[in-house]
Amino acid sequence: MQVRITVNGAETGAEVEPRLLLVHYLRNVVGLTGTHWGCDTSNCGACTVWLDGVPVKSCTTLAAQADGHAVRTVEDLDAGGELDPLQRGFMEEHGLQCGFCTPGMLMTLRALLDSDPDPDETTIREAISGNLCRCTGYENIVRAARWAAAHAAAGGAEQPTPPTGGAEQEVTA
């Protein structure tokens, strides 16, 4: 079947099997390998991307389901040419060790900060409860999110509007 998916504001399309998972579409068809393919069982969250502005696990979403919709991946976070405050927070607070979970963590936490700009630790931990860090670096990931919340005005507010149409939708769910 033919799918057309807006990825990070750009139109993409391909002839795919209906059973192709969104994570494999992004990595193997579009060539965006920032989205990691992890547990394959919707547990680890390494494959988290935004579908119409809502973070979802792309290993449990068909590319076919994203046909006609907008996807945002980790590659779009520095789309303005400047790292997202969250990415800077991960650098400042050593929020990653091996880095495998990081793309999913970033996409989940970016959605959290967009809806709750100053989340407390409990809120952050609850938000990333579907993202597993096997290095168990949660302390620093939480600190990184707090850093981003504290420094949002320095970078986030001045960033240009991301080109992805759906990415700007508020997470109403």
């Binding site: 919707s42 969250g45 988290t48 809502v54 973070p55 979802v56 696990k57 449990t60 979403t61 989940t108 609850e126 938000a127 409860s129 579907g130 993202n131 997470v171 769910a173």
Partner: peptide
Amino acid sequence: IADPLVRNR
């Protein structure tokens, strides 16, 4: 029930 990402879907 599951986690926030699963609950989104």
